[in-house]
């Protein structure tokens, strides 16, 4: 199948991501849609490493690496300075992992969105602190093993719903996207780019290392997350108008879970309970989209 995406890349080959890294795929598609008039702020995350050590850089756009919890604030400052120089054309992007977004960076992100700062905040979500060695975050899903939720202490809390938290701010644009659906991802980035004010993209980015999966099924796993309704593709405009972009045929979550080492301890009963939780969430989303 041929993808309907521009050939031009804004990433050099030879970056240092793990084989099968969803975050590297996500960056490549994001930049295809944003183009070269982009300044990127990267708080601490896997991409602090993937982008390369001094004096090399994987990205063909200017990058400002910054402290873990500062994505929302630093991007606000970059925007302010560019505006003062009369440069309103350059797109400012904060690019952060789930730890830097859901946890330590949430305050700065919430502040920036409340102020309706004019930049795109992208969270590539690999569902744990992968760069530091697979520790649980508030994005880690119910049922997952991590190095800080080992053995019988597997995570018993739900994943934080970050999009709904930002929708509660009445953010002009928020959307989920997946590396397994690049054209949908591209369209959402292009749409976000054209909107003024705060914009949020939540990109599901599989992590073979942390999820205990073979690297060659990285994209397949990301696709299954959408097809099981674990990670629905949808967008919300002005915090009000919901659009669901993909209606799956409804695979069972256990098929997704069984392929991943991080869930191998779960019993049939646990998986049934998770199936119920996923169905509840999907029902709630359909309700918000005016479909129930």
């Amino acid at each position: 199948m041929q993808l309907e995406l521009p050939d031009r890349d804004y990433m050099f080959p030879g970056h240092v991501a793990c084989p099968g890294c969803g975050a590297a795929v996500a960056m490549r598609f994001l930049l295809k849609a944003l183009g070269e008039k982009t300044v990127m702020v990267i708080p601490a995350c896997c991409w602090s490493i993937i982008a390369g050590a001094y004096p090399q850089s994987t990205l063909k756009i200017p990058v400002l690496h910054t402290a873990f919890e500062t994505g929302g604030a630093v991007a606000s400052g970059v925007r302010a300075a560019l505006d003062m120089r009369g440069d309103t054309q350059t797109t400012v992007v904060a690019w952060a992992g789930d730890g830097g977004t859901f946890d330590i960076g949430f305050q700065a992100l919430s502040g920036a969105v409340e102020r309706n700062e004019d930049f795109i905040y992208v969270c590539y979500d690999n569902e744990a602190y992968m760069n530091t060695g697979i520790q649980r975050s508030s994005s880690t899903p119910y049922g997952a093993w991590t190095t800080t939720t080992p053995g019988r202490d597997w995570k018993k809390m739900r994943k934080k719903n970050i999009v709904e938290a930002l929708v509660a701010h009445r953010i002009p644009y928020a959307a989920t996207a997946s590396i397994a659906y690049p054209e949908d991802l591209f369209r959402k980035v292009a749409k976000a780019k054209a909107i003024k004010g705060a914009r949020f993209l939540h990109i599901f980015a599989s992590c073979p290392t942390g999820w205990r999966i073979p690297s060659e099924i990285s994209v397949k796993i990301a696709r299954m997350a959408v097809q099981t309704n674990i990670f629905p593709l949808y967008e919300v405009e002005d915090g009000l108008r919901y659009t669901i972009n993909f209606f799956p045929k409804g695979y069972l979550v256990k098929e997704y879970f069984r392929l991943q080492g991080r869930f191998k301890h779960l019993s049939e009963q646990d998986l049934d309970q998770i199936q119920t939780m996923v169905e509840e969430d999907w029902k709630l989303l359909r309700h918000k989209a005016g479909m129930s």
Binding site: V39, T66, T70, A73, G77, V78, R85
Partner: peptide, 11 residues
């Protein structure tokens, strides 16, 4: 943090 962004962009 915001000023780190602003100053890096030359303000």
């Amino acid at each position: 943090a915001a000023l780190i962004g602003a100053s890096s962009a030359g303000a």
